[in-house]
């Protein structure tokens, strides 16, 4: 009798265990489908997580906004970051608000630091997961590129209601996965000989 109750309770738990990941997926799929698309300039660096695998850590260029006058923003505080476009069509952080903006695109993020009248932000655009061999190669490719000409890595994201989902990472105008494939086939062309 007691065992039957346990089994029923276990089935409830199993359902919750399934619903939570499902909702994680659904939420992101909706944003990928309906969200507004933005490009952020980034600097990718190879990194590692024991559970989730290798990824390139993305450092967003200019991850700060000017401080708000007459309002005290603290470290760790959750804010809304309003996104604008610059002349080249890349996303730019324009300001932070403590209340949800009425219109335009914005991201919910935490303040990482406040320093010299600048509010630095911890944007939830910080990891791009790749296959374990690809991630270090991706970093190398980016480094070659940023040495040769200007830094032209950017990440494409979708944003909806303050929630952001990463779509893909581009280096030199090409998807990073394609670059990595080329690099693996033909290391000479990209000047990547000896990296693997």
């Amino acid at each position: 009798m007691k065992n039957r109750l346990m089994i029923r309770l276990f089935l409830c738990l199993a359902l919750i265990q399934l619903v939570v990941p499902l909702s994680m997926i659904a939420r992101r799929e909706f944003v990928l489908r309906d969200g507004a698309q933005f490009k952020f300039k980034v600097a990718p660096v190879d990194s590692y997580d024991a559970f989730r695998g290798r990824y390139v850590a993305l450092r967003i260029d200019e991850n700060y906004v000017p401080a708000i006058k007459n309002e005290k923003i603290k470290r760790g505080q959750a804010v809304f970051v309003v996104i604008n476009l610059d002349a080249q069509g890349f996303a730019r952080l324009s300001e932070v608000t403590t209340g949800r903006p009425r219109r335009g695109s914005y991201i919910r993020a935490n303040v990482s630091n406040v320093y010299n009248d600048k509010i630095y932000l911890d944007l939830p655009i910080d990891r791009y997961y790749m296959e374990e061999k690809s991630a270090p190669l991706a970093e190398k490719i980016y480094q070659r590129y940023s040495q040769r000409d200007k830094k032209d890595a950017y990440v494409v994201v979708r944003i909806k209601d303050g929630f952001v989902v990463i779509e893909s990472l581009y280096v030199g105008g090409q998807k990073i996965e394609d670059m990595v494939k080329q690099g693996m086939k033909n290391p000479n062309r990209l000047g990547l000989r000896g990296i693997r």
Binding site: P21, M24, I25, R28, F51, R52, G53, Y55, L123, P124, I125, D126, R127, Y128, Y129, V165, I166
Partner: peptide
């Protein structure tokens, strides 16, 4: 973990 990986969750 796999979901975090697939959707590049921060």
């Amino acid at each position: 973990s796999l979901i975090s990986q697939t959707y590049n969750i921060s």
